Computed example of a mutant assay.
Amino acid sequence: METTRRKFQGVLNILSFNRHFYIVGIGILALITISHQLFEWPDLLYWLIMAAFLYGLIMPLIVSAYVYDFSGYYNFQWLNKCSIDESKIQQILNINAGFDETSYIIKDKFPQADLKVFDFYDAKRHTEPAIVRARKVSIVYPDTQQIQSNSIPLNDQSADIIFLLSAVHEIRVHEEKILFLKECRRLCKPDGKIIMVEHLRDFPNFLAFSVGFTHFFSKDVWKNAFKNAGFTSCKEVKFTPFMSIFIYTP
């Protein structure tokens, strides 16, 4: 399967999956422009409001292009920071929320390993419009299994690596996150690793996504979830100012 990405595929995905946000934003800009023509209000206020709305529409696309199209996220060179001996990896799990751009790349990266792919998407629980649209265009890796987030059908301590790549924030309820991470801990070998990559609800992502940064969770929320799931060892590595790689071991 070809794993080469199209130019600007990341930013085009953002536009496609979040088009409701951009349609509303452009509509509001049009209303502001019309009201400025019909009513007398200060030009400075008008341009400040226009600048704020344009910033909110354009900056997420710029940052998304940087992170997903130009930073090397999809060539997985950032794995060098995770201290992985590729020759010892036998079983890999890649768990997503129904949008999968990484499984074929992971298989190319670890050709000797058995890769199992799981999708925890639940239409009743995970209701974000963006992920609903993303699922419709996602490439499905062969034999991907649909699962409940609290039940993954594998034996204890069977996985060397569990990848959670920009997916677990779709689990919005904290208690569900904890149950999911407990399952991941059960599956992970004692010397295995859980590798989670996420945007955080922090200042750089606020600058990037404005109010959209609330779609993500803070570092403290993730640390609390992993702690309550039984993990004690954690390493965080920044991948661009906007994404964090969390490496957990049982």
Score class of each variant (00 low, 15 high):
residue 241 P to C: 10
residue 10 G to H: 07
residue 65 A to C: 03
residue 85 D to R: 05
residue 92 I to C: 05
residue 222 W to A: 11
residue 195 I to L: 14
residue 36 H to I: 01
residue 90 Q to L: 03
residue 83 S to R: 13
residue 221 V to M: 12
residue 108 D to G: 10
residue 30 A to D: 01
residue 220 D to F: 14
residue 145 Q to V: 04
residue 47 W to I: 14
residue 107 K to Y: 10
residue 143 D to L: 12
residue 135 R to S: 06
residue 185 R to Q: 12
residue 17 F to K: 05
residue 197 V to H: 12
residue 199 H to Y: 15
residue 25 G to Y: 09
residue 62 I to Q: 08
residue 250 P to W: 09
residue 184 C to S: 07
residue 155 N to D: 11
residue 55 Y to W: 00
residue 41 W to D: 02
residue 94 N to H: 14
residue 211 V to P: 13
residue 232 T to I: 11
residue 116 K to R: 14
residue 242 F to T: 08
residue 242 F to E: 10
residue 197 V to F: 10
residue 43 D to T: 11
residue 155 N to C: 02
residue 233 S to Y: 12
residue 74 Y to I: 00
residue 57 L to F: 01
residue 59 M to F: 03
residue 67 V to K: 01
residue 179 L to S: 13
residue 226 F to L: 08
residue 214 T to W: 15
residue 220 D to N: 15
residue 186 R to A: 02
residue 145 Q to G: 02
residue 205 N to Q: 08
residue 160 D to H: 05
residue 246 F to A: 12
residue 125 R to H: 09
residue 209 F to L: 15
residue 10 G to R: 07
residue 177 K to M: 10
residue 86 E to Q: 13
residue 164 L to H: 01
residue 128 E to N: 12
residue 82 C to F: 06
residue 30 A to T: 07
residue 206 F to M: 09
residue 69 D to N: 00
residue 188 C to P: 05
residue 192 G to C: 04
residue 222 W to R: 04
residue 174 H to V: 00
residue 41 W to E: 03
residue 34 I to C: 07
residue 226 F to V: 02
residue 99 F to Q: 09
residue 223 K to T: 05
residue 163 F to N: 07
residue 103 S to Y: 07
residue 216 F to H: 11
residue 221 V to I: 13
residue 239 F to E: 04
residue 101 E to F: 08
residue 62 I to P: 05
residue 115 L to H: 04
residue 75 N to S: 09
residue 3 T to P: 01
residue 239 F to Y: 14
residue 238 K to H: 09
residue 121 Y to S: 01
residue 165 L to D: 09
residue 143 D to Q: 15
